[in-house]
Design a protein around this nucleic acid. Structure first.
Length: 357
DNA sequence: AATTCGGGGGC
DNA sequence: GCCCCAGAATT
């Protein structure tokens, strides 16, 4: 019998394992894709994306051959688009440097774009049997409670400390199951608010429970408040009703996605003046700012926006931009990767078009 | 070590 | 509203 908590945890996991899509066929590719999607994203959110992505790109080879824009379209709405760009590039690296075979050694796999300490440990343990502990948000919280650790989980160093601690506990013969069990416990029982200690398989091993510190742990330092920005965008239509959209730079926020031209309103600037300035800066044209279309709110991770869209008409100049731009019909937009904040404009756009006609 | 990266769900 | 989520890359 195994009375240590890892033993109890594994036994519990055997009988309480959720049947998730990426647990049905454990190829390295499928586990890898799932872990990239699961980064900072809930299981329930990922499931439909995983099915669609695997159907479209069933192998690393098909992914490597795909256009980045198509990969981004399958990622649309999932956020953190660098994950998709890095996964796509990594697939190309696998084809070019590894003869199309995803490396099963941690030192090699870890070097692929978008593969950090967590994804490396997760894929290498779950799909390849390497005894490397994962440290995600669930594990940070759960371990701090099991050992009543008053670490600040917002500090990067805490991840290293907990990884070192778990390296002593992870069973050599079942590393993947142990890692999944730790995360499963954190996701379903040892939750951030009101954890289900009564149903916890290792409650008798939990120091936080013994010391009545469960609701106090883990400790996390707070981040600074997020700023709000005022944004304006232009809906410029040509004679046949198509709209001008442009592609964002490859890197940075929403990299590689399409959107309506526009930008931040500067201090002391009116909304129309800001829009005229942005159109001149980005597209080298003078515009007349017409009817207001709609105003929407949207929250990103570290700032919020209040965005107003206006119909605009080009009065002079020749469209010029260092970024790709194109005229798009509504159905074109539907087939391109388009950020959520811009999607929020579209319903109001349809209504006004009907009015005009 | 701190910042920058989405979007949704729970409370 | 705020918090968190199967984190990585950049500075």
């Amino acid at each position: 019998m195994d009375d240590s908590w890892p033993g109890k945890l594994l036994k519990w996991f055997k009988g309480n394992r959720r049947d998730l899509p990426w647990r049905q066929n454990r190829s390295i590719y499928r586990v890898w894709v799932s872990e990239v999607m699961l980064q900072q994203t809930r299981v329930d959110t990922v499931i439909p994306y995983f099915h669609r992505f695997i159907e479209a790109f069933p192998t690393v080879s098909t992914l490597a051959k795909a256009d980045q824009e198509d990969v981004l379209k399958f990622w649309e709405g999932l956020g953190y688009y660098a994950r998709a760009r890095n996964l796509h590039r990594a697939a190309e690296v696998v084809m070019e440097r590894f003869n199309g075979v995803i490396p099963d050694q941690p030192e090699l796999f870890r070097q692929l774009p978008g593969v950090g300490p967590y994804i490396s440990a997760a894929v290498m343990s779950i799909a390849c049997g390497h005894a490397i502990p994962v440290v995600d948000g669930n594990v940070l919280r759960t371990v701090c409670r099991i050992f009543a650790l008053e670490y600040d989980i917002a500090q990067p160093a805490t991840r290293k400390n907990i990884a070192a601690l778990l390296a002593e506990k992870i069973p050599e013969n079942k590393p993947g199951e142990f890692n999944e069990a730790m995360m499963e416990l954190g996701a379903t029982i040892c939750t951030p608010a009101s954890p289900g200690c009564d149903g916890c398989p290792i409650r008798h091993n939990c120091l936080a429970k013994q010391k009545n510190l469960v609701s106090e742990l883990p400790i996390k330092s707070r981040k600074r408040p997020v700023p709000q920005y005022r944004i304006v965008v232009a809906v410029i239509t040509d004679s046949s009703g198509r709209m001008l959209i442009q592609k964002r730079p490859e890197n940075g926020l929403l990299g590689g996605l399409w959107e309506f031209p526009g930008g931040k309103v500067e201090k002391g600037e009116t909304l129309p003046d800001a829009l005229k300035r942005e159109c001149m800066e980005e597209l080298a044209v003078k515009v007349k700012v017409g009817k207001e279309i709609t105003t929407i709110r949207h929250a990103y991770t570290h700032f919020k926006i209040l965005l107003t869209a206006f119909y605009c008409t080009i009065t002079s100049g020749t469209l010029t931009s260092y970024l790709p731009f194109r005229w798009a019909k509504m159905e074109d937009i539907a087939s391109l990767p388009f950020p959520k904040a811009n999607h929020k404009i579209l319903p109001a756009l349809r209504e006004i078009k009907i009015e005009v006609e």
